[in-house]
Design a binder for these strands. Structure first.
Length: 399
DNA sequence: CTCGCTGGATGTGTCGGTGT
DNA sequence: ACACCGACACATCCAGCGAG
């Protein structure tokens, strides 16, 4: 039983639900995409359709439904997980180790939280909530992940998916934990080298006196050292990325440099080559067991640890660098501190900031200045000691 | 123009597992 | 017992930019 109206018609179906339909501007009959529970709902739909026709914004309900499906599909294609992956895949300007690190940030920290959310629906509140969810846990990892999130969202802004980035956590990408570096005295450095496994003694001395980075020393080849002239040429740095070890050009152009060695380093190298010859000019100076690039963990060794077997506790001795640093009473020493040691010893030997900058391969004087300040502290201590001596002299002359 | 800040990139440190 | 791997956590460094 039809119900005549000026626009369209509403029919009560045997199911007791209502169907609305009308003849569109295209002279075809269009059904509502669903049936309605009440006559009022059906009328509301017809009214809406009629307005579309009169404003000229009309398209057939079927076409509109199709369009809706398409845009929904497009929306889902822009879920964070897929969008971020596409972003990473499109980055050809980063080093493999960086790609690895970004990938890890995504899979461990960002995708679990934002993965299924369309990029343009991630709000500032979402980001803040994610950031806050860490509390005091893994601040560095969080800052890292935040930086990656920021980069992905910046891309979304470029793509005009969103108007502005939802990443508004102030300094969210920064890590503030900063450890006080340890600086060895010359005597401690010599003791450390002595306590290292023999194949790493020259390497240790070279790190502590010439300031080469870990990645730079392990990438050294026979032809990079000139024992006659007493210089090392740094042209490569070892990198690790998804389990692969490789060596490539250094981080910055300033990293390419020639560093003079104190004779002690040259002597240690000569001894080293006597025991571990590197015949070919391209042979690695400090290779790993299988002749490939030395792994960082091989140099570090293992810390002292306890092991339980059959109810008994055994103390396992540390080895490698972990043993050596304990042996000289510096259990908290980091390998990288040797670089600072080299910088400080260099400054004490009279190097200027500029000279230290080029010796260490820094592109800015910032770091070298930092070492200068460490030296200023030592200088203060010298002044203090002088003062103590003056006072002692005064006491003895007056008493 | 200098300087300090910060985003982003890249390197180092730790540790359980595994092969020799 | 040692030497190294692999995964993950963490620290450092560089460059660009805006304030003064």
């Amino acid at each position: 039983m039809g119900h005549r109206r000026s626009f369209g018609q509403i029919i009560r179906l045997p199911s007791k639900r209502y169907r609305a339909r009308y003849t569109g501007p295209d002279q075809a009959l269009h059904n509502a995409p669903t049936t309605f529970e009440t006559r009022e709902d059906a009328e509301a739909w017809l009214t809406d359709e009629r307005r579309r026709v009169s404003t000229g914004a009309w398209a057939s309900p079927a076409a509109r439904l199709e369009e809706l499906r398409r845009s929904e599909a497009a929306r889902l294609a822009r879920v964070f997980e897929d969008y971020a992956q596409a972003w990473l895949d499109g980055r050809h300007d980063i080093r493999p180790s960086t790609r690895d690190s970004y990938s890890a940030s995504l899979s461990r920290h960002l995708v679990p939280w934002f993965g299924r959310t369309p990029v343009d629906e991630i709000t500032t509140e979402d980001v803040r909530a994610w950031h806050a969810s860490y509390g005091t846990r893994t601040p560095t990892a969080r800052a890292h992940a935040y930086a990656v999130l920021t980069a992905v969202m910046a891309r979304a802004v470029d793509d005009e998916l969103i108007a502005r980035t939802p990443c508004r956590v102030k300094s969210g990408g920064r890590t503030q934990v900063k450890r006080e570096p340890e600086v060895l005295t010359l005597a401690e450095l010599l003791a450390l080298a002595e306590a290292m496994p023999p194949q790493h003694r020259a390497l240790t001395l070279m790190s502590g006196l010439c300031g080469l980075r870990f990645g730079e020393v392990v990438a050294l080849r026979r032809r990079d050292v000139d024992l006659e002239r007493g210089v090392i040429t740094v042209t490569r740095t070892a990198v690790r990325a998804n389990g692969e070890k490789a060596s490539g050009p250094p981080k910055s152009a300033a990293g390419r440099r020639t560093v003079a060695m104190p004779r002690a380093v040259g002597d240690a190298l000569e001894t080293h080559l006597g025991h571990y010859p590197a015949a070919h000019p391209d042979a690695l100076l400090f290779p790993g067991r299988d002749g490939s690039l030395l792994a960082h963990s091989s140099l570090y060794g293992l810390p002292a640890r306890e092991e339980r077997r059959g109810g008994r506790v055994y103390r396992k001795e540390p080895f490698g660098f972990m043993r050596a640093r304990e042996a000289i009473g510096r259990p908290g020493l980091h390998w990288h501190d040797l670089r600072r040691t080299a910088a400080t010893l260099g400054a004490q030997a009279g190097a200027t900031v500029r000279e230290m900058q080029s010796r260490l391969g820094h592109s800015t004087p910032q770091m070298a200045l930092y070492y200068q300040s460490a030296t200023a502290e030592r200088d203060q201590r010298i002044a203090d000691r002088l003062q103590a001596q003056i006072e002692m002299a005064q006491r003895s002359s007056s008493g």
